[in-house]
Amino acid sequence: MARTLEVATAQYPIDTFCAFADFQAKAARWVQDAVNHGSQLLVLPEYGSMELASLLPEPIRDDLHAQVSALQPMRDDVVDTWRDLARRHGITLLAPSIPWQLDDGRFVNRAWLCTPAGIDFQDKQIMTRFENGPWGISPGQDLKVFDTSAGRIGILICYDSEFPLLARALVEAGAELLLVPSCTDTDAGYHRVRWCAQARAIEQQVAVIHSPTIGEALWSPAVDINIGRAAVYTPCDHGFPPDGVLTRAGDSTPGWQFARLDLEAIRELRHSGQVNNHDDWALQHERLDRAVKRQSLR
């Protein structure tokens, strides 16, 4: 019998809070809504936790560097909130990522994966110009594959999804689902992540789940504008949508997109699909072992 997985991917707005309890109430509402739909795997976006900066005094909130330092005393309580919800409801949940200070003083972009059995994290690998420059966010620890009741999961945080060798490394290590939390402030940025997420699904013959932040938070210098559409992408092959879009939001309304993933059918594509991208990956290297020849037709 085919193994199916009920997934929920969020279009998550950056809200403002008067107290930490307001954040906890929001988290509980969102998780309860997904659980009411029978979801087993919930995916939330990159930098969604920056909404907690709304609790800081305005001069700190308005300072890119001061805000990430001021968030650190909250970080454990933030993770505990999502961990407790995953445990209470018996689900697997990728929490919104948060800037996380390391012992050496650097900040990384860290997303926590919470399950009923425990938690672990994935750090972003390749930083954007904004992260590298004005914000001062650094690359973190290595890529990981998480063995969970929802399947073997790899996480590519936003810009990481635009680098196929990262996805390939995760798939070669056993990942059968790739989660792509994102935070983009232009249509171009969103479409880069969207099309690359779809490309990773086709190249690696896996499902890719994309969750973006959405809406405006003009009080925030870090996540003031948020553009994206939550989606679940699959290979374009037998038994799946011809365009590889299992579900995608039609507008920017906050909320979940729900889908049922047939993981066994996706795995079977590697043996009986119309194409064999996963196994044919190595053929690129064989071709590239030969010198690229430059020809003139002028």
Rank of each mutant, 00 (worst) to 15 (best):
80 D>W: 13
126 I>Y: 11
257 Q>E: 13
111 A>W: 05
53 A>G: 05
49 S>P: 01
225 I>K: 08
187 D>N: 05
214 I>K: 03
38 G>M: 08
166 L>D: 02
163 F>G: 00
166 L>S: 00
18 C>K: 10
20 F>T: 00
45 P>L: 07
143 L>E: 11
177 L>W: 04
208 V>K: 00
130 F>N: 11
29 R>C: 10
298 R>S: 12
155 I>F: 09
197 A>D: 02
126 I>V: 14
98 I>F: 14
15 D>A: 14
47 Y>C: 14
214 I>N: 04
40 Q>F: 12
127 M>T: 10
240 F>N: 01
14 I>G: 01
248 R>I: 14
173 A>M: 10
160 D>H: 09
182 S>W: 03
128 T>G: 07
213 T>L: 12
72 Q>N: 07
72 Q>T: 06
292 V>K: 12
78 V>M: 14
222 A>K: 08
148 T>D: 05
46 E>Q: 15
7 V>C: 04
162 E>K: 07
75 R>G: 09
205 Q>V: 11
238 H>A: 13
6 E>N: 11
14 I>K: 02
75 R>D: 05
180 V>A: 01
243 D>Q: 04
221 P>F: 06
129 R>S: 14
115 T>M: 11
153 I>M: 07
163 F>A: 10
58 E>I: 10
212 P>V: 08
188 A>W: 12
32 Q>R: 13
131 E>M: 15
279 D>C: 06
211 S>V: 09
266 I>R: 04
290 R>Y: 15
7 V>N: 01
219 W>F: 10
